[in-house]
Nucleic acid binder design. Sequence first.
DNA 1: CCCTCGGCGTGACTTAAGTCGCAGCGCCGC
DNA 2: GCGGCGCTGCGACTTAAGTCACGCCGAGGG
Lengths: 238, 238
Amino acid sequence: MVRILTVAEHMSVGSSLAGVPLFSGLSPEELRLLAAHFVRKRYSQGELLFSEGDTCKGLHIVDSGRLRIFKSSPSGREQVLAVEGPGGSVAELPVFDGGPYPASVSAVEDSQVLFISRHDLRNFCREHPEVALKMLAVVGARLRRLVGIIEELSFTTVRQRLVSALVRLAQTGRRSKRGIEFELPGTHQEIAHQLGTVRELVSRNLMRLQAEGLIHVEARSIVVLDLHGLTALLESGS
Amino acid sequence: MVRILTVAEHMSVGSSLAGVPLFSGLSPEELRLLAAHFVRKRYSQGELLFSEGDTCKGLHIVDSGRLRIFKSSPSGREQVLAVEGPGGSVAELPVFDGGPYPASVSAVEDSQVLFISRHDLRNFCREHPEVALKMLAVVGARLRRLVGIIEELSFTTVRQRLVSALVRLAQTGRRSKRGIEFELPGTHQEIAHQLGTVRELVSRNLMRLQAEGLIHVEARSIVVLDLHGLTALLESGS
DNA sequence: CCCTCGGCGTGACTTAAGTCGCAGCGCCGC
DNA sequence: GCGGCGCTGCGACTTAAGTCACGCCGAGGG
């Protein structure tokens, strides 16, 4: 899986990195220097990059595809902490504090990932202190999202979490004459993992929302018929 | 509440700061310099330091007493994210990223807190980059704890969370002929908030553990009769 | 002293959440 | 075409969680 990069690939790595929040603001020369330390890795759908508790080897940056960061319970349940698309990074924290990974990461779809070893990244940070600050910002954003997850888990029902996910998806959907259309970004099982629940509840709640005339479900494509009605469910305790 | 510090107080602030993870490793002179920027504040039990969503004014460090960081829901439920004792700091993150506080903070008991403004702290960090790195470590530790809370909330029952809290408390308890004794660190209500549940369930579960012969409850003092039995409940799904 | 009030124990009830089992369906490979 | 397999829908059921209402008690204040 680990390969030597060709010159052409180094250039493409550099341009990929340009879009990463962690390294935005670096000059083209700096990016080129940095890119030399990266290795491109490929993972196929469902493949595990590493498991919770493993010792941290380095930082991963998503080039294409999507990675999910998740915890899993002994009984097979999973809770997704974040899904990172292109430009997202994974494991910023353990790279820095040297501890083990706090969660596992796997590929949602076939993905290409840029990898840099802990050692190389730390050296680079020493010479470019701004990167360390960016790190703090990225970790901070993650912390805020985790607080959001905790809030949802302890204050809201599965139904509300599902609605809130639908509303979020609707924002990137396309409007048609019937309403706002979009595709579910995975199986019911995967959505259940993201909401911290089980498949059946996702299915049931989707059907229920359809019965209430708020959405229309057809396989994996959703049409939001009454966005206003949906958001109303979030405010009121129902 | 904000007061000018006397010279004697500055010295005591300096010695208080010496024990704070964020500033460990600074020389006595540096500490003295830093202490000059601090203001001592006092809060009485239950008092609110700030609310979720407020814009961040600066960093708080616990000198004496205990602070709780929590989220609260519109319906009055609360979820405690962390309780910080002496040496602990609060709001490291928003100081740095400039965003609003992600949660509220109040005093569990009468507390004394050392406060430094965002501005002064950032300046100090610029001159002492090690402090920024410490910051990353502290934020990192918080992130790991949040992941732990998420794990507990989505995988475990209230009963298990309570047991796990009891086991944790037992580690700092004293042993007697009957077992390990300690006091509950607050009312049932407060414990419920920390576990993300309601008063009644704490009460009931304590009684149930007593009925099962694992603990003995007498007002707020707990005697763990069978620590082994308790930890067994954590492993097996019951 | 009595009265209030906060904290606690408890029973009865409602409901969200999760489990189990099964059947239909579409897709892919053989 | 046919047999599997993954994804889905759904009914019946169990159980954890939360709500409501009450009564009790001990501490503290008028």
